[in-house]
Design a protein around this nucleic acid. Sequence first.
DNA 1: GTTGAGTCGATAAGTTTTTATCGATATGGA
DNA 2: TCCATATCGATAAAAACTTATCGACTCAAC
Lengths: 231, 231
Amino acid sequence: MSPSPNDQALVAIPEPTLKRLPYYYKSIQGQREAGREFVSCTTLAEALGLNPIQVRKDLQATGAVGRPKVGYHVSTTLDAIEECMGYHNTKDIFLVGAGHLGQALLAYPGFSEFGFNLVAAFDVDPTKMETEFAGKPILDASRLSDLVRRMHVQIAILAVPATAAQAVTDTLVRAGIRAIWNFTPTRLAVPKGVLVQDENLLASLSVLSKQLESSRAKSHKESIHGEPEEL
Amino acid sequence: MSPSPNDQALVAIPEPTLKRLPYYYKSIQGQREAGREFVSCTTLAEALGLNPIQVRKDLQATGAVGRPKVGYHVSTTLDAIEECMGYHNTKDIFLVGAGHLGQALLAYPGFSEFGFNLVAAFDVDPTKMETEFAGKPILDASRLSDLVRRMHVQIAILAVPATAAQAVTDTLVRAGIRAIWNFTPTRLAVPKGVLVQDENLLASLSVLSKQLESSRAKSHKESIHGEPEEL
DNA sequence: GTTGAGTCGATAAGTTTTTATCGATATGGA
DNA sequence: TCCATATCGATAAAAACTTATCGACTCAAC
Ligand SMILES: NC(=O)c1ccc[n+]([C@@H]2O[C@H](COP(=O)([O-])OP(=O)(O)OC[C@H]3O[C@@H](n4cnc5c(N)ncnc54)[C@H](O)[C@@H]3O)[C@@H](O)[C@H]2O)c1
Ligand SMILES: NC(=O)c1ccc[n+]([C@@H]2O[C@H](COP(=O)([O-])OP(=O)(O)OC[C@H]3O[C@@H](n4cnc5c(N)ncnc54)[C@H](O)[C@@H]3O)[C@@H](O)[C@H]2O)c1
């Protein structure tokens, strides 16, 4: 099946690109505030410590077009990113688990910048139920299923203890949730069609620590074998 | 340069593999608790929703060896992962920024499982300084540089406002930090040799939300073009 | 004008990561 | 004892992602 013209938007943007777009967005916003009207891949790459060619490809994926020798028009490009990422569409979100991590998320004002609206949190702890935190209501988790269904909420944040992760997931899925942002260290079993984005913080820290160890071993070996390597 | 035998440990393990290892570790621990002595890639993959071949390759990277038809010896394999990831080496860590997110991390008991020891937090807020949170001291940020140096701390968590991110980074780098786990939405400029692991939470959420939108568009198109596709 | 340099877009090459294939080996039952 | 089967390890193929190359375009300076 050859791609027809209006398939363009359907060619999925690679995940690494999606993760970089917010950096471009923020950086270009900075340029706008500084009064600049155009920005080049070279400049962006410089500012963000990335490869200019990669920046160009990423921007291309959003539909932004640039002009040779000039660069990308700041406002137009910001619009392209917003449009591509849907920063303007309001997306309601529920948080399940208003513990330490959940409360940090509740207090975070940054969600709205990208169109997210953290509507409410849910918890089983009676001392938290029917209270507020950072202006957001914490509701009885027994109401979760009903409210997901009634409000057609599509995205949920999972910040419950690992032991409760799969059970809560099953509830969410039955209620019709479409995507789960998972902070628990559990691999969730979900039916096809439900998306899960794992945010396994400890795993990321382990990666960092392991890479640190490897880089030490490497530089040690280099110093033995006499390859100076220090630009 | 052809790899000599004892280069094995120096062939860097791919980052995606490193991120999956904690899942295997936890899953195999579960098997041990259930009294099983061997576990196969097939079983592991089933439990974690992964590809069996990928599981095998990942385990291979840790140095674990299995036996055909039998699988991997549970205890031996756990040891291999621990050894590979350095779960036994204690790694001291400083946290900079004891705000909402920082406090959630301070309260998190899971770090020790992988050998991390969150020693102390640092903040500029006078009302937080010289207090404790979850049994961990919150110290005056002006002491950060000195203590990094004196205690030879190599890893820091960055959980300060974005506006302070680069300045704090510079301080850490000057004091000799080797790795930064960065929760701010800023791309940090660091000299070669200093590692940064970005944990851009909003970017991850954006990815999820964009993929959700795409999957909706896709299934809509499929329903129009009459490709049922529902296994 | 003409020239020169900075930048884009398209295409190609390279690298990394995932998935597939296949022979070898161990186990349990015929 | 032999055979069927599950599984591993090694190697190869495929896919995804990053980096390089090159012609074309635009602007500014001469
Ligand atoms: N805190 C961190 O820094 C951190 C770091 C990495 C991972 N995590 C993971 O994030 C998750 C939450 O961590 P935390 O530190 O906030 O834990 P927490 O114990 O502070 O909070 C968990 C909350 O979930 C609630 N809860 C329990 N069962 C529930 C259910 N069935 N429905 C709704 N709510 C329920 C509890 O009442 C509690 O308020 C855990 O899985 C943890 O492993 C946390
Ligand atoms: N809270 C969240 O859920 C969340 C989500 C995504 C990203 N983040 C990012 O994490 C970072 C921290 O978020 P937060 O919600 O904890 O913010 P916060 O405002 O609650 O906490 C920031 C803390 O850093 C301290 N601080 C400021 N300057 C400092 C300095 N120079 N040295 C040491 N400490 C300093 C402040 O006193 C404050 O206690 C921010 O960059 C934010 O964008 C947070």
